[in-house]
Amino acid sequence: MTTAAGGLTFRDARDTDVDTLVRLIESAYRGDSSRAGWTTEADILQGQRTDPEGVLEVIKSPGSRLLTVERDGSVVACCQLEHKGDHAYFGMFAVSPTLQGAGLGKVVIAEAERRARQEWGVREMHMTVISVREDLIAWYERRGYRRTGKTSPFPYGDERFGVPQRDDLEFELLVKGLGQ
């Protein structure tokens, strides 16, 4: 467990956190509650963003962790880190919609990068972002991530990832060098 500025506590998720983390992730990306923040995907995807099985899989997978961020005992953010050899994968990033825009996301991503570099010795962080999310991609670019132009298909027909509201969705790989 690590405590950072602003009274934040970072820890690995536990099985008992699953329902809380699913609610957080859903609130940040889907439905009307997500519109309180700027990371909403409600206009391009409906349905769920994740489910308890998906969150538990991240918690239990070897080489993977779901970093959970608390403030005053309440879960306010989370992100997945997965060790992939020479790089780490960053995903399942969510910040409570009512706290977005105040710098919390910057603190969380910086801590995730620090941990991946320090604990796994990786030189790069990789992530995938839905390519039509220009505002979100621009936010990551301001944090040092670069677009690679490498894309992978959106899993149309697999409602575990949501119900697409348009037919041009794909994921783009973003990469950041972490230095040593």
Rank of each mutant, 00 (worst) to 15 (best):
Q48F: 05
L24A: 09
V22G: 12
A102H: 09
I44G: 11
T98V: 13
V22K: 08
V58Y: 01
V75I: 15
Q118F: 05
L21M: 05
D135I: 01
Q100A: 07
G85R: 08
A42I: 01
V129R: 00
L45G: 11
L24T: 06
D86V: 12
A112D: 07
P97S: 10
A42C: 10
E41T: 08
V76G: 02
A88W: 01
S131N: 13
V18R: 09
E141H: 02
R142L: 11
E113K: 00
Y29M: 03
K106R: 11
G103P: 02
R123M: 13
T68I: 00
D51I: 08
E119W: 05
G63D: 03
R30D: 09
T16A: 15
G73R: 10
E70F: 02
R133C: 12
G105A: 12
D17I: 01
G37R: 01
S61T: 13
A28D: 08
G144M: 09
G105Q: 02
R123C: 13
H87M: 04
A28V: 06
S74E: 15
V108Y: 00
R35Y: 08
E82H: 07
C78N: 05
P62H: 06
C79M: 06
H83C: 08
K84D: 10
G73C: 10
S64R: 12
V129N: 01
M92P: 08
I137F: 00
S34F: 01
K106F: 00
H83Y: 10
G85N: 09
G31I: 04
V122I: 10
E53A: 15
R71Q: 15
V76H: 02
W139P: 01
I44M: 14
A36H: 11
M127R: 05
G101I: 02
A94D: 03
E119F: 04
V75D: 07
A112E: 05
S27Q: 12
P52K: 08
F90C: 10
S61N: 09
V95D: 03
R133H: 10
Q118H: 11
E53H: 12
G47Q: 14
R123P: 08
V129G: 03
V22Q: 10
G121E: 11
L56A: 15
E57I: 02
E82K: 12
A94W: 01
I130M: 07
G91D: 10
I130N: 05
R23P: 04
V55W: 03
D86K: 13
I59F: 04
S74H: 13
R49L: 12
V95Q: 03
F93Q: 01
A77P: 09
G101T: 03
G85T: 05
L66E: 09
D19C: 11
R133E: 12
A88K: 02
A112H: 05
E113A: 03
R142Q: 14
T39Q: 13
E124V: 07
P52I: 07
E111H: 01
E82R: 14
R30C: 10
G121D: 11
D17N: 03
S61G: 07
I25F: 11
R30Y: 08
R71N: 13
K84Q: 13
Q48C: 13
L136P: 05
S74N: 13
I109L: 12
D32Q: 15
Y89L: 14
P97H: 09
V75Y: 04
G63K: 00
G103E: 02
A116W: 04
V75G: 06
